[in-house]
């Protein structure tokens, strides 16, 4: 049986206690909420910790509340399952429910949390392996080694940002709050991420992600599609999230985000620019979708499931499919969305 290495364990009941515990030795302490990312990583020994601080016992960190301005605030340790079942979220952000419901499997979502999904360690098939396996390749630069085996001449790590809720929450314009013993700060979710497989978060080790605030959708039309091999369990190898605001026939504002195509969530800026002020129709959508493939940061490499060239081509197909769904156009092709959903006949 693969087991956890030994650590000391803390179960604080308040945020203050938690950040104080974290402040003593942030380099060797890790916070855990659901355990569905950290514990596998610790068992495989590519993430280590002498001390683990559980956020589960902190009541202030879970739950979903609505603000007066119509925005919704989600506590970071709210389980993914609780989010998919929440009526407010279902009503206001149906595509967020789709995205969150696509994370791993139902049994994992009963433990996994939204904060954990946002802070999910970047993934790579050269890295997410047991200690003994990584010894066989002499490790990689993300942990103990010198080389990125996906792109050996590259100076950087190309591990993949794989949180399926990330592109959707970015498209919805979410903000997050980080708390440390020195205080708290609020920033747009998109600013949490960095385009580097190792240093992939702007969150400091002594900070705890406490809340996610999603602005009122105010009439946005949204869509989310994810590509993966199986209808459950698998991480995405491409996810597309769209949130669009139309005025009559034309697009006032639109956000198109990709997940799992690089070390950071990718905003399709050229596609967005191509659609502003235009109607969402067959032609504009096809043109915007073609631009998506070239978005900065969208760089599928050979460190996930499926061959990278094909994943790259799928960006266009999937962006087109989601935009068509948002525009209310009929599906052109029979791309399945999720494993258990039947294709249209």
């Amino acid at each position: 049986m693969l087991r956890l290495p030994a650590f000391t364990f803390h179960q604080p009941e308040t945020i203050e206690e938690a950040v104080a515990l974290l402040a003593t030795d942030p380099a060797h302490t890790r916070v855990v909420a659901g355990g569905t990312d950290l514990f596998p990583n610790m068992k495989r020994r590519h993430q280590g910790a002498e001390s683990v601080v559980s956020l589960r016992g902190i009541d202030a960190l879970h739950g979903i509340t609505e603000s007066k301005d119509g925005s919704v605030i989600i506590g970071a340790t709210t389980t993914l399952d609780a989010i998919t079942r929440d009526e407010q979220i279902q009503q206001k952000y149906p595509s967020l429910v789709t995205a969150v419901a696509s994370i791993s499997s139902p049994v994992l979502r009963n433990a996994g949390t939204i904060g954990g999904n946002l802070c999910l360690d970047t993934r790579c098939t050269y890295y997410n392996q047991n200690e003994e396996w990584r010894r066989s390749i002499d490790y990689c630069m993300k942990e103990q080694g010198d080389i990125c085996w996906v792109a050996p001449s590259s100076p950087r790590c190309w591990a993949v940002s794989s949180g399926d809720s990330v592109p959707m929450l970015c498209a919805l314009g979410a903000e997050i709050t980080l708390v440390s013993s020195e205080g708290e700060r609020t920033l747009p979710l998109a600013e949490l991420f960095r385009d580097d497989g190792i240093d992939y978060l702007s969150k400091r080790p002594d900070e705890i992600l406490t809340t996610i605030r999603i602005p009122s959708p105010s009439g946005a039309r949204t869509g989310f599609w994810k590509l993966r091999r199986r209808g459950s369990i698998d991480f995405g190898v491409l996810s597309v999230a769209v949130s669009g605001w139309c005025n009559g026939n034309t697009t006032d504002r639109i956000e198109i985000w990709l997940g799992s195509v690089g070390s950071t969530p990718v905003r399709c800026t050229a596609s967005i620019a191509a659609l502003i002020g235009k109607p969402l129709d067959d032609e504009t959508i096809a043109a915007a979708a073609a631009l998506a493939r070239k978005s900065a940061g969208a760089n599928p490499l050979g460190n996930t499931d499926f061959v990278p060239q094909w994943r790259g081509k799928m960006i266009e197909k999937y962006v087109e499919a989601v935009l068509r769904e948002v525009a209310g156009l009929p599906r052109q092709r029979m791309v399945p969305r999720h494993g258990s959903e039947k294709w249209p006949s």
Binding site: N128, Q129, S136, I137, D138, P152, S232, D234, G339
Partner: peptide, 27 residues
């Protein structure tokens, strides 16, 4: 196999239940 000039490694690509894909109920 890793690039031969840098490494002699020849490893199982994905010895795990996650990456060795076996169909779920959904398939």
């Amino acid at each position: 196999r890793l690039p031969k000039k840098r490494s002699g490694a020849l490893v199982h690509k994905h010895p795990s239940m996650l990456e060795y894909k076996s169909p779920t109920f959904a398939e």
